[in-house]
Amino acid sequence: MTASPPPRRPHPPSRTAHHATPDKDQIALLDPFERLGTDRITLVSTPEQADTACNALAAASAWGFDTESKPTFVQGEESDGPHIVQLATLDTAWVFQLHDPGCRARVAELLALRGVTKAGFGLGDDKKRIQAKLGVVPEGVLELNHVFRQQGYRKEMGVKGAVAVLFNRRFIKSKKAATSNWANPRLTESQLVYAANDAYAAARVYHALGLSASA
Score class of each variant (00 low, 15 high):
84 I>G: 06
46 T>C: 06
118 K>A: 04
48 E>Q: 12
53 A>V: 03
210 G>M: 04
9 R>A: 08
166 L>R: 04
149 R>N: 14
51 D>Y: 11
36 L>E: 05
122 G>P: 04
105 A>I: 00
192 L>W: 05
64 G>K: 04
187 L>W: 11
56 A>M: 12
118 K>V: 02
145 N>R: 05
59 A>E: 12
143 E>L: 04
63 W>C: 06
91 D>L: 11
190 S>E: 15
207 H>C: 09
211 L>D: 01
121 F>Y: 10
145 N>L: 00
21 T>K: 05
200 Y>H: 13
41 I>P: 03
182 W>N: 14
17 A>W: 02
59 A>Q: 14
175 K>L: 13
101 P>W: 04
175 K>H: 13
35 R>K: 14
174 S>L: 10
123 L>A: 10
145 N>S: 14
194 Y>I: 09
148 F>P: 12
215 A>V: 15
74 V>T: 14
147 V>L: 07
132 A>T: 14
153 Y>N: 02
29 L>F: 13
168 N>L: 15
170 R>L: 10
131 Q>L: 14
83 H>P: 05
129 R>Y: 01
149 R>K: 12
103 C>G: 04
7 P>Y: 01
67 T>H: 12
98 L>A: 10
14 S>W: 00
61 S>P: 03
210 G>I: 07
8 R>S: 14
55 N>I: 00
109 E>A: 15
70 K>F: 04
18 H>A: 13
168 N>H: 15
